[in-house]
Design a protein around this nucleic acid. Structure first.
Lengths: 180, 180, 180, 180
DNA sequence: TATGAATGAGGCTTCATTCAT
DNA sequence: TATGAATGAAGCCTCATTCAT
């Protein structure tokens, strides 16, 4: 994921990957039938990290607002500790949706688990009268993921002036206002 | 931009481009010295469209809130009429920042005009007591561009249930709350 | 010839030639049916310069030794004043004989005039008991043209310490000893 | 070297080379990073052959005249047995010096070893009062290499009437007289 | 006679994938 | 299960040549 995140899908060659993994080129093919399937595995892994973070939070018995705060915190921690996970996701998966186009309908098969947890969170907030009832799901979804995504992008561009984690409360606030 | 937006930078081959443009491969090179320079021209063009839309709006003597509404409207219109412009921008430029890495400091040289107009808008809103004073610039920036970006992505995925333009007011509302 | 001499046959493109000649690309083709034919014309011209210099000298009623001296003098003058003529000849014609391969037998069709004048000079020297009688023609030919050719090459490499023309007497001496 | 010698640098394509080598195109690039580097390797090899022949001769305790004879003999043998080595050198390296232009000063980096051995030979001859003391180095160099070069050229043109090796004594004689 | 935009074949190089060991 | 040399399709780019004006 580090390589993919840094160099993009096409500039990450199998020989490079092999070197970084201290494996031979051929041996990679003993584990993944193709470069694409390797990338898909990584997408599943990355989206799984986000999904399970949000899943744990969704299970807690706290307000939706607090859930937003916890998730933003988790997310920024990931950005700080393993930026490759998120950057890989943004850069390889989202920016190349067509390559990853799954056989079936227009869903996000590979990121499905995460999308579902977001749905759970949003509905929870609505049910508890914290998020506005009538806001379209896609807009709420865009608020939550868009703000985090754009911020991740800025972090990757190294233009932030403070430490990533320190923006946590303010970001959560802004997202919350966008949903409430 | 249509091809780039649909297939990404690497899958958009020069022969393909040539066919679409009804030009010969060689003749493309009479206008652009390389595939990259062609893409850069397109980035400049796309970012120019957004910048000039926002610029026109920034010049008006209306509230910041109204400016947000107008810009979201413009933006969605672009998404609807020429989705390639925005998708190209997201998919080719933002997702491959390293390829476009400009010689100079970490700025977005190619998209600078747009970024500057966003700054103008945000400061205007703060000066007029419509946007919250203390919110970090990068967060406000993420709110404005992130929500629109994520929504664009959803539109591109064809998962929206209504016509793109019809989301205009609601999106502008959400962004406004994120800034106010 | 300047361009050909400096950049070789392949790196001398027609557009480049057109620019240097202040002509349009198309117009060059009004005078020469192909790049090759243009180069052949230049070869004929260059070899003609050498041939006519030697021809004039051959007509004089002086010793073979003096003829050698005069020719070396002429030759070095050409190298100094229009190095492109000789360098073009060496670099484009001799180094690409196959490209210039003429339809007929293995002769130097394009450089024939010059080769013939050399023959005249050598036979004159033998007839006048100045050059050794039994030395193979090809060896004498190699002495005369080889020494000048190698020297031209060194001149082109800019390794000489004195002005080209100043080597005249010494070179003629060496060639003469090689023939005598 | 055979292909390069026969067709020149530009007409020797990688696919052609691959076929001749019974290798795939791609595999050539496992051994040489570029066509140029492959050619440079060959230049080093070819110049090494000449250099080591002359080096062995230079180490012998014989007269300079005998050294000339031995070297001419060696040289003609190479021309006869592996004409590609010398023709490659003349045709690809010398005729395209600019392509091979090395980073450093105007030296013949790739052919340095050979040039140095020539210097050793010439100085030896001068020290032993066999070669004339005051003849400029560049002229002596031109005599030695020029005569051999021109003769090689003639051999390549297939105009010689006798077997190459049979010219050995006569060529050495002529060179010797040019130096003495 | 002059122009130069347009054409397209062909060359160098990359890299996912295979396979003999 | 591991290795890495070998394969060859495919992409970017160049440039001799054409032709409508």
């Amino acid at each position: 994921m580090k390589l993919f995140a840094r160099k993009g899908f096409y500039h990450t060659t199998i020989p490079l990957l092999a070197k970084e993994l201290k494996m031979s080129v051929g041996n990679i093919y003993n584990y993944f039938p193709s470069k694409m399937s390797l990338a898909k595995s990584a997408v599943r892994f990355a989206s799984g990290i986000l999904a399970s973070s949000l899943h744990r939070i969704n299970e807690k018995d706290i307000t939706a607002k607090e859930k937003i705060y916890l998730f933003v915190q988790d997310y920024l921690e990931i950005i700080q500790k393993s930026p490759e996970v998120i950057e890989f996701f943004l850069r390889v998966y989202l920016a190349n949706r067509d390559l990853f186009e799954e056989d079936e309908d227009g869903g996000f098969r590979l990121a499905e688990a995460f999308v579902q947890e977001v749905e759970v969170l949003l509905q929870y907030g609505i049910r508890h009268y914290e998020f506005r009832k009538n806001q379209d799901f896609f807009i709420s979804f865009s608020v939550l993921t868009g703000v985090l995504g754009a911020f991740t992008f800025l972090a990757g561009e190294n233009v932030l002036e403070k430490e990533v984690a320190s923006y946590s409360k303010e970001i959560a606030d802004a997202i919350y206002r966008g949903l409430a």
